[in-house]
Amino acid sequence: MATAEAHRSSTGKYIVVYVCILAIAALQFVIAYSNLDGSQMLARMLVLATIEAALAVLFFMHLWMENRGLLWFVVILTGFVIFAMQYSWTDSFRLLNGVPWAK
């Protein structure tokens, strides 16, 4: 258990992370109003959201302060599973062109 003093200093850190997350979120809102095309915007949004999420996971959820093994366990397992889900996209794009004769 950490001491009270350590926690006082962590309050400052939390606020910094908090401000960062809100700043990134604000950046997303700004990008939303830009005239980028869909995929460009999506890419930027996803990168920013991932940074936000990483900040939250590492500092709000204290993963950075935990055992490194836990960090790798969580990040690799979650990352792998989510990554493995991405196979389906090609079929999604095919639907755009493979419209039924009816249309």
Binding site: I21, A25, Q28, F29, I31, A32, G38, M41, L42, M45, L46, L48, A49, E52, A53, A56
Partner: peptide
């Protein structure tokens, strides 16, 4: 943080 950009902002 993922729902906002994907579901709202896009």
């Amino acid at each position: 943080m993922f729902v906002v950009p994907l579901v709202y902002l896009l």
